[in-house]
Design a binder for these strands. Structure first.
Length: 557
RNA sequence: UGGCCUAUGGUGUAACUGGCAACACAUCUGGUUUUGGUCCAGAAGAGUCUAGGUUCGAAACCUAGUAGGCCAACCA
């Protein structure tokens, strides 16, 4: 038994290193900390997979923690959608936590900081504070309130908490270093007054902690060992450590913040503002429009949780700027769906074929393999009759040898059925082909084992029997943007790069087997692509979303 | 006029921590195939941002430069 030694990414290396020095395996604990202020997208999916993936790998608990410190933006609907997205991806959190659960503890600690001279109430406007902040190259200057007495700070802070002061009158600041080269350390705000109801604590609090004050402390309270976040928080690490040091005792296991580069996907946008714009301007229909990079959009498009997880895993994790080609994501779904999706036939652009030597009124039910990649998937029956549809592009009156499809005088196999030969065409007065008349070889039935059935013919076409066909709506989705990075051009708006053909609604004739297909059922329309039943679908009106086309190596035409 | 992070084929990650650059996607060939899918075999493509230095030996370490990113919200 040889086990392939897989190289570790830098995050895993950090953990392995910590395991060798000051952490036991049982100390490991992670968390996914979304702010419930919007819907999750593919970028969050990477982060979810990273944290929960580490949990699985190291058999460590992973908390789902809502970073709900800003009642102005956060809502319960987002909490619910985030939970369902994480579950859909297939992960289980150890505990469902909320930063708001720690408001009292945070407040008590803040009082301690004030007593220790590590925090003070500032009573200036935010403009004044900003002007004293200095610049990256110039040190800041101290607030006139920096030397307030502990007693006064305590009294003021309590007044703030009780909502006895104006919202903009005071803030609580950490007293650190106004000359620090790291501007984050120049007396950051810990609390602001917000006389606004919170989605969980209601009107209990009139002050709310800032991210920096809440995050590391929440990690510490939950005894999270490693707190992974994106690179933009790197300068915050110093502050994270400063705060944690003040609330922990020596000997306590304190959490470590480590940063990784956010992973960007080509041909899409991911910022909440831009996504909202797409919805508001009706460029897409909703937040879960199948073109959206939201988890709910990907789900509706037909992406499987497994494909998203393997995607996240396969792209790795690093610290440099990146732009991952969406083709890689598409590869991941194809790879997964190839193993799972039931093969069916559907014709998008119909051309009528009449099999002149097939008895009128006769029908046969032929058996079709559900999935050649998986024998246990079984088979289903497809009706065959005298008249059927094939794809327009699968017939030409004449064509060269590279055209492995139907042409006059030549044979082709109808998938799972018979070999047919094109004999004649019927055209209208404009020369448009209306029908192709063929003959079939009655001995060539697929699976019959006859010599004729085993004959090698150039090509195999998908088809559907006209009297049995069901008309369905197909929504053919493509990339939402025509360029890799729609935000790269500073002269132009990202909306200028919207792909006008990102959605094409069409009609398809599908085999009757699909009649009872339910929302989210996934199929491969043979030779065309993977499709997923949309939630708009009904018994009378089937709707299929094209998840992704099949790979196509035939780049002629 | 600062601090910090980063730099490896087209893309994304590797290189057992100093021993002549690997994997996946994408691209191209050929084979198999009742899906021009899958699968199989193969090809091409970087000498690791630049210049110095340390070393028998550098993608890795050091110095300087260049390029990109982040940092001055009562956002997270």
């Amino acid at each position: 038994m040889s086990e392939e030694k897989k190289s570790l990414n830098f995050i895993e290396q950090i953990i392995e290193e910590d395991l060798k020095t000051d952490y036991k395996a049982s100390d490991l604990k992670f968390r996914f900390p979304p702010e419930p202020n919007g819907f999750l997208h593919i970028g969050h999916a990477s982060s979810i997979c990273l944290n929960f993936g580490l949990g699985l790998k190291y058999n460590a608990p992973v908390n789902l923690r809502f970073d709900d410190t800003n009642p102005l933006k956060e809502e319960t609907v987002y909490v619910e959608s985030i939970k369902s997205d994480v579950q859909w991806l297939g992960f289980e959190w150890a505990q469902e936590c909320y930063a708001s659960d720690y408001f009292q503890q945070l407040y008590d600690w803040a009082v301690e900081l004030i007593k220790a001279g590590d925090a003070y109430v500032d009573s200036q406007s935010s403009e004044e504070m900003a002007s004293q902040k200095g610049t990256p190259t110039q040190p800041g200057t101290a607030s006139p309130y920096r030397k307030r007495s502990v007693e006064e700070n305590l009294a003021l802070f309590e007044a703030m908490k009780n909502g006895e002061t104006g919202e903009k009158a005071h803030v609580l600041r950490a007293k650190i270093d106004m000359a620090s080269p790291n501007m984050i350390m120049r007396d950051p705000v810990m609390y602001r007054c917000l006389h606004k109801a919170h989605h969980r604590t209601g009107n209990d609090w009139m002050i709310y902690p800032m991210y920096d004050w809440a995050h590391g402390e929440s990690d510490f309270i939950e005894s999270v060992s490693h707190s992974f976040c994106t690179l933009e928080f790197l300068p915050h690490r110093e502050l994270y450590n400063w705060f944690v040091k003040r609330v922990s005792k020596t000997g306590d296991l304190v959490p470590k913040q480590r940063e990784f580069a956010r992973r960007n996907l080509s041909h899409t946008v991911v910022s909440k503002r831009k996504l909202a714009q797409l919805v508001e301007q009706s460029i897409v229909n909703s937040w879960d429009d199948p073109r959206m990079p939201t988890i709910s959009g990907l789900r509706r498009r037909g992406y499987t949780p497994e494909s998203i997880r393997t995607f996240a895993e396969s792209i790795g994790i690093g610290k440099r700027e990146n732009m991952i080609d969406v083709a890689h994501l598409e590869f991941c779904v194809r790879d997964d769906l190839n193993k799972k999706a039931t093969r069916v036939m559907g014709v998008m652009d119909p051309l009528k074929v009449v099999i002149t030597n097939y008895p009128e009124g006769k029908e046969e039910w032929l058996s079709a393999e559900n999935n050649p990649e998986d024998e246990s998937a079984g088979e289903h029956e497809v009706p065959f009759s005298r008249e059927m549809y094939i794809e327009q592009e699968d017939f030409r009156e004449e064509a060269n040898r590279k055209f492995f499809r139907l042409k006059l005088g030549k044979e082709v196999r109808l998938k799972n059925a018979y070999i047919i030969k094109a004999e004649d065409v019927v055209k209208d007065e404009n020369g448009t082909i209306l029908e192709v008349h063929c003959t079939y070889d009655s001995e060539s039935k697929s699976g019959s084992g006859t010599e004729a059935s085993q004959r090698k013919v150039k090509g195999t076409l998908h088809w559907v029997s006209i009297p049995h066909a069901i008309e369905a709506e197909v929504r053919l989705y493509d990339r939402l943007f025509t360029v890799e990075d729609p935000t790269a051009d500073k002269e132009k708006d990202f909306l200028d790069f919207v792909n006008p053909e990102s959605l094409e609604v069409g009609k398809a004739y599908v085999e009757p087997y699909l009649k009872s297909a339910k929302a989210e059922d996934k199929f491969q329309f043979q030779r065309i692509g993977y499709f997923c039943v949309d939630r708009d679908s009904t018994l009378d009106h089937l709707v299929f979303n094209r998840t992704v086309t099949l790979r196509d190596n035939w780049k002629n035409k």
